[in-house]
Amino acid sequence: NFLLRRLLFPFEYLIQRRLEKTTNYNRGSIRVVHIFIWFFCIFSLMFATAPLIFFHEPLENHTTLLLFITYYCMLAPFCFWFQPRNLKQ
Rank of each mutant, 00 (worst) to 15 (best):
L19D: 02
F47R: 04
P10R: 05
W81M: 12
L19F: 01
E12H: 07
C41Y: 09
P77I: 09
L3G: 03
Y25P: 00
L65S: 10
I37G: 01
M74I: 12
P10G: 03
Y71Q: 01
F80Q: 06
L87K: 09
T49Q: 07
F55N: 07
L19G: 04
L59V: 13
Y25G: 01
V32E: 03
F11A: 15
L59M: 13
I35Y: 10
F78E: 05
S44V: 03
F11K: 13
L3C: 03
F78P: 01
L59H: 06
L59G: 09
F36S: 06
N24D: 08
H62W: 07
N86D: 07
Y25Q: 10
N1T: 10
P84K: 15
H62D: 03
S44D: 09
F47H: 08
W81C: 07
H34W: 12
L87M: 11
H34R: 07
Q89P: 10
L8I: 11
L7P: 00
F80R: 02
T63I: 13
W81G: 00
R85K: 15
Y13F: 11
T49L: 05
R5M: 11
L67C: 12
I69A: 10
Y72P: 06
L3K: 11
T22E: 09
M46R: 12
Q89D: 13
E57F: 04
N1I: 04
I53S: 10
I37V: 15
H56R: 14
S29I: 12
L67K: 10
L4K: 12
N24L: 08
E57V: 14
E20M: 14
I42E: 12
F36N: 00
R6H: 10
P51W: 00
F9T: 01
P10F: 01
Q89H: 11
Y13T: 09
E57I: 15
L14H: 08
E57W: 01
E20D: 11
L3M: 11
C41Q: 04
I35V: 15
E12V: 02
F80S: 02
L7H: 08
L7E: 09
L19R: 04
R31N: 13
E12Y: 05
Y25R: 07
E57M: 07
P51S: 08
L67G: 03
L67S: 11
M46S: 10
L66Q: 06
R18P: 00
F68N: 10
F54A: 14
F80W: 15
T70Q: 06
F43T: 08
T22W: 14
H34E: 05
F39V: 15
P77R: 06
N61F: 13
W81I: 15
I37P: 04
F39D: 05
F9P: 01
F47Q: 05
A76C: 05
N26F: 04
P51N: 10
T63D: 04
N24G: 09
F80D: 06
F36I: 05
I53R: 10
S29C: 03
T23D: 00
H56E: 15
I30A: 03
I53A: 08
L75W: 08
R85W: 09
L65N: 06
I53Q: 14
K21R: 15
